[in-house]
Design a protein around this nucleic acid. Structure first.
Lengths: 120, 120
DNA sequence: CTCAGCGCTTCGATTTCCGAAGCACTTGGA
DNA sequence: TCCAAGTGCTTCGGAAATCGAAGCGCTGAG
C-alpha cells in the first residue's frame, strides 16, 4: 500500500482529508515510535532498529520509505535518517500525547495496584 | 494480545513505560480513529462502525475491548460507547496532531500539485 | 406476530508483520 | 593486501493481525 499523504486515498478513508491520512500513517505500527526515536537527531538504520526494540528490518525499511515519501523524514548524505522540519512538527504535536500517557499511568496506578514504572 | 496499559509489557517494549504503552495502543489500527469519532459524545456500535468507514465489526469489537480495558472508553447503560475523562484527555492530546496534519497538507500541496482537499 | 434495527460473534480469505539469513559495501587494523 | 567487523538493506517462509460477509439473539415499533 502506498504511504498515506493528504490528498491521497488512504486505508479507511477515500476522501484524502489530511487528518485521515495522518491517522492512517500514525496508525501503522512503529511509525509513532520511529518519529519519537529520531527526536534527538540523525540515527543510522541499524541503530534505529535497536532503539525500536529490534523491530524487523524489513518493516523498518518499509516504514522509512513511507516516512520519506511523506517528507517527515529525510536521509542525510551519510545515509543516516533524520526528521525534516515537518517531521519535527509532528514530533512536537506528539508532546501532549507524551504528557497524557503519564497522566494515564498515574490514573491507572491509583485505581489499580499494578506496578507502573517511572519515566516515559 | 492484551490491551496495552502502562505497567504492562507491550508489543515492542518490555519496560511497561507509559509512553511505550501509549505508542502501542495508538499504533494499532483504528484506535486513533475511534477516539476521534467519539469526540462529540456517545455512539452506538453500528453507528461507530459506519463513522469509521465501515471497518470490520470484529476488529471494532476487539478495539473497543482494548479501549474499555485501558479505561479510555466506557459503555453506557444504553450500550452506546463514550469517552471517559481519560479518553477525553487523550482526545485533547490529539488536538495538536490535527493542527499539524493541516500544516502537513499545506506544505505538501505547495511543493506538489496533488489535489489536496479542504477540512480535516 | 412480524419485521427492522441493534450489539456482537464466527470464520475463511487477505494483508501485514515478523525474524533469521545473507548480500554488497565500507572501514580499520595486521 | 587481506581479513574481520560493521553498515544499509533485501529476501522469503511462517505467524499474526485485519478484513468482510454472514448470521445469531434481542428489543421496540407497528
Amino acid at each position: 500500500m502506498a504511504a498515506p499523504r493528504p490528498g491521497r486515498a488512504v486505508r479507511g478513508s477515500s476522501t484524502g482529508r489530511p487528518l485521515m491520512a495522518a491517522l492512517d500513517l500514525f496508525g501503522r505500527r512503529w511509525n509513532l515510535r520511529i518519529i519519537w526515536e529520531l527526536r534527538h537527531g540523525p540515527v543510522g538504520f541499524r541503530a534505529l532498529q535497536e532503539r525500536c526494540d529490534n523491530m524487523s528490518s524489513s518493516v523498518l525499511r518499509q516504514r522509512l520509505t513511507e516516512l520519506l515519501d511523506a517528507t517527515l523524514v529525510e536521509q542525510q548524505p551519510d545515509t543516516t535518517y533524520a526528521l525534516t522540519e515537518l517531521g519535527h512538527g509532528a514530533r512536537r504535536a506528539l508532546g501532549p500525547l507524551v504528557r497524557w500517557s503519564a497522566e494515564w499511568a498515574a490514573t491507572l496506578s491509583a485505581a489499580d495496584p499494578e506496578d507502573v514504572p517511572q519515566g516515559f
